[in-house]
């Protein structure tokens, strides 16, 4: 399936642009040890914050894309964490803009079912000294890292490693790449166009499946379906299923 192949190419172009400017660092996920999960309360109040990422007053973006095309993901660097901007330890006491992007490679026969499952994995991250709130439909992620965790060396690498390990446990996922942007508001905002397109595609897919709505004349996503062949495939598949169910009574 290639619901996001075109957006992944744009993401690669974004990374290339930052790389040309010497703004990126690549971290290997297996260079990091497992970070312990929080056994008790993981609330981080203002006075305990070591670094804050994507505060509601700052730029923030978060999305996930997937592909069955290995070549696409290799360019994003499977199993690697791409960091655009400073890591946490270099940002003591700061509030930074933040983007978290996940690129998955695998086999996703039912894209909707996969999306539901994968989005829950992304939310299910529990690391000691790391607290986050995320709103997928607004593509916002707001994280806090405690002073104590920073003192112990907590890094974006730990978050990336945890995400990669968790996703790789999924049968449908073969490879994962993670991108973090902490550099500037401008760098995060540059992702907005890609992120909007991802959300429109996910929105169109969700609407088709959840509402079984195929009236293209009244649908706010008709332009997206016209543009993305894989969405039209999902629609045809759903329509065929509906016809079969109707015929069989």
């Amino acid at each position: 399936m290639g619901l996001f192949n075109e957006t992944i190419k744009d993401l690669e172009a974004y990374i290339q642009k930052k790389e040309d400017k010497g703004k990126i660092r690549i971290i290997k996920h297996d260079d990091y040890e497992d970070w312990p999960s929080s056994n008790t309360s993981n609330i981080i109040l203002k006075e305990d914050i070591g670094v804050e990422l994507g505060n509601p007053e700052m730029a923030s973006d978060s999305f996930m894309v997937w592909t069955e095309d290995l070549e696409s993901l290799e360019k994003i660097r499977s199993g690697m964490i791409t960091l655009v901007g400073p890591d946490l330890v270099e940002s003591w006491g700061k509030s930074l803009p933040f983007a978290q992007i996940l690129v998955l490679k695998g086999h996703f026969e039912d894209e909707y079912e996969c999306y539901r499952r994968l989005i829950n994995i992304e939310r299910d991250i529990d690391l000691d000294g790391y607290m986050f709130r995320a709103v997928p439909q607004r593509r916002r992620i707001w994280s806090r890292v405690s002073k104590e965790a920073l003192e112990k060396g907590f890094s974006l690498g730990n978050i990336g490693k945890t995400l990669i390990d968790k996703f790789k446990k999924e049968d449908s996922v073969d490879a994962v790449g993670v991108i973090f942007v902490t550099s500037t508001t401008k760098d995060v905002k540059e992702l907005e166009d890609i992120s909007n397109r991802v959300q429109r595609r996910v929105g169109a897919m969700n609407k088709m499946v959840e509402e079984m709505s195929f009236d293209c004349n009244s649908c706010e996503y008709s332009d997206v379906c016209d543009e993305v062949r894989d969405l039209r495939k999902i629609r045809r598949k759903l329509q065929e299923t509906e016809v079969r169910v109707t015929r069989n009574g």
């Binding site: 989005i119 829950n120 939310r123 709130r133 709103v135 607004r138 969700n206």
Partner: peptide
């Protein structure tokens, strides 16, 4: 949005 999306938004 669905229940999970609403819950995530409210939590935020």
């Amino acid at each position: 949005g669905d229940k999970y999306e609403m819950a995530a938004m409210l939590d935020y």
